[in-house]
Design a protein around this nucleic acid. Sequence first.
DNA 1: CGTTGCAATGCAACCCGTTGCATAGTAGGC
DNA 2: GCCTACTATGCAACGGGTTGCATTGCAACG
Lengths: 181, 181
Amino acid sequence: MSLDHALLVSLLEKPSSGYALARRFDRSIGHFWQATHQQIYRVLARMEEAGWVKGRLKAGDAAPDRREFTVTALGRREMSRWLGEPTEPQGYRDALMVKLRGAAFDEPVRLLGEVERRRAMHAERLAQYRAIEARDFSGPLDRQRALQYQVLKSGIRFEETWTEWCAETLGLLRDLERRDR
Amino acid sequence: MSLDHALLVSLLEKPSSGYALARRFDRSIGHFWQATHQQIYRVLARMEEAGWVKGRLKAGDAAPDRREFTVTALGRREMSRWLGEPTEPQGYRDALMVKLRGAAFDEPVRLLGEVERRRAMHAERLAQYRAIEARDFSGPLDRQRALQYQVLKSGIRFEETWTEWCAETLGLLRDLERRDR
DNA sequence: CGTTGCAATGCAACCCGTTGCATAGTAGGC
DNA sequence: GCCTACTATGCAACGGGTTGCATTGCAACG
């Protein structure tokens, strides 16, 4: 919800063009949020109309012209207002949970490959996060860095949880198979 | 994604009316998935047309007439087919992360109340899950029970992770405040 | 020089989820 | 007997996200 404010924060951290935002969402932030360029351009247009951001044409040195967006004073005020609002937790609906329950009406062992695949994916992400942690967040951190680190830490914790849970689930599935035979 | 299959599983576990499904989604499953009755009725209509489920009118004893849906053989086959498909992990985009990064451009201390509120919410959910665990999943479990328990366990793990992370975040925010003064 | 590829922006259409509203019947409170 | 509340179903409209396609400009490859 509210891609608007996610973009606002992203632009506060670094003024960018719509394209650059889309690319960045594929990387750092995008691990836990995905947005296509379409959404981004539309949201940017909406925010510009509302006066939260302002786009300036930067004639391309090499690439075609791009519109670089910066956050206005009004945008900052909106940001601040939004910070004060309460936010509800997002239910983490993952199809894997549904499949697990569904597997009771099929052969649970069929999920083995899938769960192992997922375990590997989460383990790999975890490794990526740890690499970022070591590279960018060792040593003393200023305020902004410290807060960014805390967000990264949530990613680390969740990927840890995922990998552990997947491993446990693999054990259960093998157990159920043994029981059936 | 694919509320269709979530409903299919729910109906396999227990044939129900649209209304009952909506209620159940508020409880057990709904902790990590929320669906309004609107969606549910529309999806049910779609699935009935596809022949995955069949609705039978049960003249109400007390309440008004309700249409109880059961899964057809075709629906079971679809379920089984879907189980074989790979599922991508759902990025857990939570506004709280965005706010934390945004707080770098405001007063981080303003988030204290919000994070504490969230910590309490997750702690409470955790307690609920643990209560369900003790009530419904102690002692030996059949296949279906065991799989349901594994889903519940993910809820427990994630809520644990959340509460711990929130507590850590509270520490950081207080730390940043001390630094500023 | 033409083709391929990528940076950068955008339109249009569709689907899904959300919100607000409507209805109809039954049960219980005052 | 009326009002409120709850069960049960549904329509309509809006907004956000997704997908597919289109365009312009530069750069590099053969």
